[in-house]
Design a protein around this nucleic acid. Structure first.
Length: 422
RNA sequence: GGAGAGGUGGCAGAGUGGUAAUGCAGCAGCCUGCUAAGCUGUGACCGAGUAUCUUGGUCCCCGAGUUCGAAUCUCGGUCUCUCCGCCA
């Protein structure tokens, strides 16, 4: 969430930044500032009262020890007399803190300067495009047909055993998954990311820390008996490693990665968006995360973008990079680059990675700080998919299909253990 | 699932009603011709003011309660550990 100091010191700039999301936050922010001013005034009153009571209590202790019982009894009355007002002010303070916190939680992050104003995907800015779009041979088909033709993925079986959006991968389809995961992890390791295998369920605190709660509660699978949530992305457990921590500047940047399945309810999706591998309830992903010094976090974002580019180049897939506009960015992000791969047979772009800098938005929820030169400061958090499997598999099958089967790109062959699918 | 023990600063660890010892680590300063040691200082968060300083409050897992005063006593919750049971 945004920091109160940002609202206090840069009210107009925050409102202008949020306007790029199509949000008019002036009224909300002024409400927060008013409640905060009242909160501080209330605390000043309460602190004064408590100081008085504390001093009197200490004095009573001294009087009792020196045997001046009557004087002590008289002072007890003063302390007791303060109690009612103290209780009232404490309640007021808690209520004001609660309302400020609640309002802050529902304000999205401020887009950074480079981000364009805009309402939807149409306003995103293309910043890079690799090579040319391939033309496929006569008779090229979408991946769901290839998946059944070569017996790689069984969607119907998944629907029988679990439900739509939970496919089975079989034979070379399964080996392809395993090989891609290993390829992504090893490339991350070479780039200096420490690998973790995190839990696949998270608690409420962690969901709040990275911003899935309370905003996106309905998108996560919830285990009611234990109040745990299935992870929608490894971002949640990986970033929450650093919840409630105070780091040294020398520790930064921290680079971690991990492979996990991801679980998403995807309520409200329909149509061709959900056909085949395009949108699943369970999918595999390798995530990279950085905890960075604010001074260098945008350089780290560029570094992560370059990392993902390298992966797609090795996979020989045509792609473009978009810098998302204010209205299309996630709630918690300050800047996001989306990677889209061209799906030749479907003739559409498929999002395969999202790389974001959250600046202090998550850090403020996580209470993740470091000892900086000017005292303790919030860190910047960043993360990116490197990469999400299903649409990569879709694009690999579709773009590398030929009359003799599907060609595995050379750089991937060592990881999957075969050179083609036929 | 049953029984028991426990949760104190970055870490270790004392503290059974009078307002958080001590050690280690980190950081800063001082000292010192030998790769180090020694000495001194240093918790987090929220406020106020005459604002590189002064000062108040909160924080001993969380929440209530008793009390002039709670890390300490009472109740509820939560998490961890040990043993037993079940079990991959």
């Amino acid at each position: 969430m945004l920091t109160l100091s940002a609202l206090r010191e840069q009210r107009d700039a925050v409102i202008a930044a949020l306007a790029k999301r199509g949000l008019d936050a002036a009224e909300t922010i002024d409400g927060i500032l008013a409640a905060d001013a009242e909160r501080r005034a209330t605390q000043t009153r309460l602190d004064g009262l408590l100081a008085e009571s504390n001093a009197a209590s200490r004095k009573i202790g001294e009087l009792m020890r020196s045997g001046q019982r009557e004087e002590a009894e008289a002072m007890k009355a003063t302390v007791s007399g303060n109690k009612a007002l103290e209780k009232e002010l404490k309640d007021q303070l808690a209520a004001l803190e609660g309302s400020v916190h609640e309002a802050l939680c529902h304000l999205p992050n401020t887009p950074c300067d480079l981000v364009a104003a805009g309402k939807s995907a149409e306003d995103n800015v293309e910043v890079f495009r690799s090579g040319g779009v391939p033309t496929l041979a006569e008779g090229a088909v979408p991946h769901w047909d290839l998946a059944s033709k070569y017996d790689l993925i069984d969607f119907d079986l998944g629907a029988k055993v679990t439900g739509a959006g939970f496919p089975f991968y079989k034979g070379k389809g399964a080996k392809l998954q395993r090989g891609l995961i290993r390829f992504f992890l090893e490339r991350a390791e070479e780039a200096g990311y420490l690998e973790y295998i995190p839990p696949h369920m998270i608690n409420e605190e962690s969901g709040f820390g990275t911003g899935q709660l309370p905003d996106k509660e309905g998108q996560m699978y919830h285990m009611q008996d234990d109040n745990l949530f299935m992870i929608p992305t490894a971002e949640v457990p990986l970033t929450n490693i650093y919840r409630d921590t105070l780091l040294n500047a020398a520790d930064l940047p921290i680079k971690l990665c991990g492979y996990t399945p991801c679980f998403r309810r995807e309520a409200g999706s329909y149509g061709k968006d959900v056909r085949g591998l395009n949108r699943l309830h369970q999918f595999d992903k390798v995530e990279i995360v950085q905890i960075a010094d604010p001074a260098t976090s945008y350089a780290k974002l560029d570094e992560m973008v370059d990392h993902v580019k390298g992966l797609l180049d090795t996979l020989e897939l045509p792609y473009r990079i978009l810098r998302l506009c204010g209205g299309d960015m996630g709630f918690t992000s300050a800047m996001t680059y989306d990677f889209e791969v061209w799906s030749a047979a479907q003739e559409r772009w498929l999002e395969v990675s999202s790389v974001s800098n959250f600046e202090t938005y998550q850090a403020n929820r996580l209470k993740c700080r470091f000892r900086g030169e000017n005292g303790n400061e919030l860190v910047h958090t960043l993360n990116g998919s490197a990469l999400a499997l299903p649409r990569i598999v879709a694009a690999l099958l579709e773009n590398h299909q030929g009359p003799d089967g599907i060609r595995i790109p050379e750089g991937l062959q060592a990881y999957v253990g075969f050179t083609s699918i036929h």
